[in-house]
Design a protein around this nucleic acid. Sequence first.
DNA 1: CACTGGCACTCCTGGACGAGGAGTGCCAGA
DNA 2: TCTGGCACTCCTCGTCCAGGAGTGCCAGTG
Lengths: 338, 338
Amino acid sequence: MDDRKLEVLRAIVEDYVSTQEPVGSKAVAQRHSLGVSAATVRNDMAYLEEAGYIQQPHTSAGRIPTAKGYRLFVDRLGKIKPLSAAERRAVHRFLSEAIDLDDVVTRTVRLLAQLTHQVAVVQYPSLNRSSVRHLELVSLTPTRLMLVMITDTGRVEQRYVETPAELTEDDVLDLRRLVNEQLQGKALADAPRIIAGLDGLARPELRATASALARVLLESVVARTEERVAVAGAANLTRNGNFFAGSLRPILEALEEEVVLMQLLGRADSNALLTVRIGDENEIDDFREATVVTAGYGPGSVVGHMGVLGPTRMDYPGTIAAVRAVARYVSEILEQNR
Amino acid sequence: MDDRKLEVLRAIVEDYVSTQEPVGSKAVAQRHSLGVSAATVRNDMAYLEEAGYIQQPHTSAGRIPTAKGYRLFVDRLGKIKPLSAAERRAVHRFLSEAIDLDDVVTRTVRLLAQLTHQVAVVQYPSLNRSSVRHLELVSLTPTRLMLVMITDTGRVEQRYVETPAELTEDDVLDLRRLVNEQLQGKALADAPRIIAGLDGLARPELRATASALARVLLESVVARTEERVAVAGAANLTRNGNFFAGSLRPILEALEEEVVLMQLLGRADSNALLTVRIGDENEIDDFREATVVTAGYGPGSVVGHMGVLGPTRMDYPGTIAAVRAVARYVSEILEQNR
DNA sequence: CACTGGCACTCCTGGACGAGGAGTGCCAGA
DNA sequence: TCTGGCACTCCTCGTCCAGGAGTGCCAGTG
């Protein structure tokens, strides 16, 4: 495959992305000074089609890139175009105004949607990858506690705990001290082991309560590994003339399913800095016609993922740059708040 | 306006809602045993049209109800049809499994969307109408605190506070005691006054920190009157063949704007048990073709609103019943957790 | 006076048809 | 190896027409 053929592919991808219409040989020859005639371009196109990079919606139409074509474009042809200085400043300012973690996530997801004109998805910092900063016990009634857990990423989880016996204020202080001593600074992934031993460490008369507490903690931490995600920019699905072949229905439905969104953001074990999944490379059926660009974020290590979802015919260089930049800023902010 | 004319209107509304097609005189005469001929129905229809309750999309088409027609239907004709026992049980079970306020709201909004097949919106309990249950101060670094506020409705707000001076553990305890003494049990609406006097009550060396704390509290409580809302069921907008005349775009956009959603749920001062706003009765331009059914909820007094958004041609009796039932159950749950 | 059957009329819907146009593949020549 | 030319394909869009649903009106009836 010689250079000119690659240039032709690039031209097709770029033109198709911007015009959304099949691009013909004449247009390529004219608009991208390749120095050859349309007929020559046609020959190259025939080759590219044979090789599976582009296809014709029907005879006598121009060509559009295939998933394979986009893949080649992303891997070898697209130069990522960094955000402009003004954009970077805007991103920075907007995110730094966040007042708490919820706000960071909300702002991030909106920002991504706005920058990329696509649907944005941001996972809250995963509990599995966080550690305990502080546990707070608030006595509501003598037999009712509220447990508040704050993680190093700023997430706050709260649960009610019914206590088997009435507790005095001192009892509560005791328990608070106990759980904090045991869990503070510990990774949540390691917590179950520690929690299991909690009741053994409490004063005899507090054992029952400690184990109620332990049960709630286990439920919050272990059983509830469900991750929270925020979504924004669904309206962008209607850009570019309803990009999904069928109706919006299945897509909108999928966007409300946390499980699906988590799959979309990628297997938890993927630590790649930035992932682009094009068309069939997505494992979720509803998104076979879509491209997903995701990045991990976190202070130091990855604690969550964010990404955008759009048509395969997206502006790859711009989108990739935006996702990467936002992920970096968010990581910085989490770092500061640690 | 005699009874039969009202019956004709009811028939038109019911048939149009279920078939989504203009209904003709013949269909009405046949399917709703009125005991008169199609010609008679035609005369009544002419009257109803003259009076503004129904209209013709074009000559030689059947009739569809106008907003005014739906209004009459809701006010005088629709018998609310209560949920079935099975539905009620399902609602109850699903909601009672919620583990915290976030979960209650999330489950509620999904439930509403599912029951009504429409877009559901639920406001979190308004901070303005809540009172302080507990304030917690967590020392992160010697000059950095995390302030956690828990309200009687279960909402948890967290903010970082930079302290002007280094604080000892005792200082933190002191401050915690101070703010709790002053604010616990107080309505947030009354809080600003109390907060303003906080620093005066602190030990001299803690004054500066107390006023930093006071500032953050004021910002959280007063300046941030923005309310949180949850949305679900956007996919239902694509039911019934894209019910909004134009594209989905503006609707989807509006659904991501908190300000708009709050307007949609209605003026905060409306304490009506249940409100139905049909077509033009909505103040928001994008929703002039829609109907919004909202209800207040809360333990005792109203602390928030919830509702659904759908086409004017909705199943009013069913929707109204669902919204009312869910609002009641949620109120019960909040009552229990108080 | 209210209701009914009949009838002419309107106007939408969906399919057929054809002109116009964009783009291709292929071929012969430079 | 590239280029210009040319025949061919197939989509798009507008027009046209038949079919059908529903109406309004009118004259007749209990």
